[in-house]
């Protein structure tokens, strides 16, 4: 995020000298006039709930004995709560596998549809993007059916090779079952973003590279990918944030595999269970906040890491 902020700051400085003192007040006023409405919504629906959640998370409610102030007690509890920790560990592991997989597929598809202009690639572009138009909940419902051994296609497909179909709802395979669902859901969206970025590249760059004797692969690796690195970074950050907050898909697949997907399967599901099923808004808020902290740390670690390596991209 810091990258982005600095970039925007730099552009403001360019026009800084233009501003005259007389216009300043007017500029302040107009700026706030335009930003104001969003600002109000932002304060009312983001800052206020966050502050409230923070406040709630400092209290503890018991069935017997009422509500008491415990300061950071809920956080101490969360970070020693095996359910929360295993949930965090799951989403971290999940991010480490799911995100690179989605990005690689999206990048490959984007490069193909960018390089090859045929009726087929244009058709493919639309079809690959189609899942993004499906609400994640509906997508999860659909895959829930497809994973069924009795009336999903898996039994038929694996039967062709004389193999037994894997049970994606079993404890060992649910990880991959969910990876598949999110890849199906999001890869097309990322592909479109990357494709849009690729289309934004000045074609004369390719021409110049070709003159220098660069082949297709070299152009893709040396010119295209570095030039869309900011777009890649953007989707990486967003998919990281999204994946760490994993909720919809496992929540829906729980109806089909309650033994495998426990209520505390991901931190967000755990927060939901605490708050809405067990009426413990205090601990639920603390878990949400703790998760927010984990997201913050992961994103900053990631940005720090990519910043150092940016030249390699």
């Amino acid at each position: 995020m810091t990258l982005l902020i600095e970039e925007s700051a730099a552009s403001t400085q360019k026009k800084a000298h233009k501003v005259r003192g007389k216009v300043r007040l007017r500029e302040h006023l107009m700026g706030w006039l335009f930003v104001g409405p969003f600002g109000i919504v932002f304060l009312a629906l983001l800052i206020a709930p966050l502050a409230y959640a923070l406040y709630l998370s400092l209290w503890q409610k018991k069935l017997i004995g009422g509500t008491n102030f415990v300061f950071l007690g809920n956080y101490v509890k969360a970070f020693t709560d095996p359910t929360f920790l295993s949930g965090v560990w799951f989403v971290v592991r999940f991010s480490l596998v799911a995100i690179p997989l989605q990005i690689v597929i999206a990048l490959a598809m984007a490069l193909i549809v960018d390089a090859v202009t045929s009726l087929f690639t244009r058709f493919s572009r639309l079809m690959i993007f189609l899942p993004y138009a499906i609400p994640t909940v509906i997508g999860a419902v659909m895959w829930g059916f497809l994973y069924s051994k009795s009336f999903g296609p898996l039994t038929d497909i694996f039967g062709l090779f004389g193999a037994t179909a894997p049970d994606f709802f079993s404890k060992n395979l649910i990880f991959y079952g969910l990876i598949n669902v999110v890849t199906w859901q999001w890869a097309g969206y990322y592909m479109i973003i990357l494709y849009a970025a690729l289309q934004g590249i000045d074609p004369s760059l390719y021409e110049a590279a070709r003159m220098d004797g660069a082949g297709k692969w070299q152009i893709a690796l040396r010119i295209k990918i570095p030039l869309i690195a900011p777009a890649l970074l953007l989707i990486l950050v967003f998919s990281l944030i999204g994946t760490l907050q994993f909720f919809n898909e496992p929540q829906i697949l729980r109806y089909l595999a309650a033994g495998t997907i426990a209520p505390g399967f991901t931190p967000n599901m755990y927060a939901y269970q605490q708050a809405f099923a067990l009426a413990n808004f205090n601990y639920g808020s603390a878990i949400s906040f703790a998760l927010g902290g984990v997201v913050f740390v992961c994103v900053y670690a990631f940005l720090f890491f990519t910043r150092k390596r940016r030249s390699f991209l």
């Binding site: 995020m1 982005l4 902020i5 932002f42 629906l45 983001l46 206020a48 709930p49 966050l50 409230y52 959640a53 709630l56 967003f238 944030i241 760490l244 907050q245 909720f247 967000n268 927060a271 939901y272 708050a275 808004f281 639920g284 808020s285 949400s288 906040f289 998760l291 927010g292 997201v295 913050f296 994103v299």
Partner: peptide, 14 residues
């Protein structure tokens, strides 16, 4: 921009 990182779901409870 920092708000982009707030779990949208974390806001639901408060």
């Amino acid at each position: 921009l920092g708000a982009l990182m707030v779990p949208a779901t974390a806001l639901v409870i408060p």
